[in-house]
């Protein structure tokens, strides 16, 4: 499973991007996008922003507030996109590209099962379990990941030298290390 995580400012400028692979079920944490997929990722993420804007204000029956975690919002070919939107309208987008076997595409040998984001052993025991972005375990894992990143993001914007809302790019290697740690822990 390969992931790309991007933070987009309220004016759609990418502020931070990090690609990584799964560390669950023996994964080595290295993303395995093909070069053509890699080239498509920015386009897929930006097109998902339209969906974010559709759903971010919640249903008409909403009591006036909505959760920051918007869950799985978009799919393009084999890429699944989850979103977290902060109070300040900064979008965190996570693109998930499961392995072909996990989607039931490739020749699935009996020993290989799709690695599930945050998959528990019990969930993976049923052979032929396919990746589903709306799976409760997947949603929970992505949520935990976003929550950790959100905390780091808050600390970033609390920095008085960081120009919030003006498209300042996050350059801190400590922030990147924090994101990588959250990814390793939950995805």
């Amino acid at each position: 499973m390969s992931y790309t995580f991007t933070i987009l400012s309220p004016t759609d400028t990418p502020l931070f991007t990090h690609s990584f692979g799964t560390s669950r079920s023996g994964g080595d944490g290295i993303p395995r996008f093909t070069s053509s997929e890699r080239a498509l990722i920015p386009f897929i993420l930006h097109s998902a922003l339209d969906i974010v804007e559709d759903v971010q204000w919640g249903p008409s029956t909403s009591a006036g507030s909505a959760p920051m975690y918007l869950k799985h919002i978009d799919k393009y070919q084999n890429n699944f996109i989850s979103c977290w939107i902060t109070g300040g309208n900064v979008r965190f987008l996570l693109l998930t590209r499961p392995r072909d076997e996990a989607l039931g595409l490739g020749p699935s040998s009996s020993g290989q099962k799709g690695s599930l984001a945050g998959g528990r052993a019990g969930l993976q025991s049923s052979s032929g379990m396919l990746y589903s972005p709306t799976n409760a375990a997947t949603e929970e894992a992505v949520k935990n990941f976003f929550q950790d990143v959100y905390e780091s993001w808050l600390k970033t914007i609390m920095n008085p030298f960081f120009n919030v809302g003006k498209g300042d790019v996050v350059k801190s290697p400590v922030f990147r290390a924090r994101v990588a740690a959250a990814a390793k822990k939950y995805l």
């Binding site: 909403s62 507030s65 959760p67 920051m68 939107i85 902060t86 109070g87 929550q147 959100y150 905390e151």
Partner: peptide, 15 residues
């Protein structure tokens, strides 16, 4: 918002 009573809910105003 992050310090709201239930930090896990992470609610933001939409109206």
């Amino acid at each position: 918002l992050s310090r709201s009573s239930n930090p896990l809910a992470s609610i933001r105003p939409t109206r």
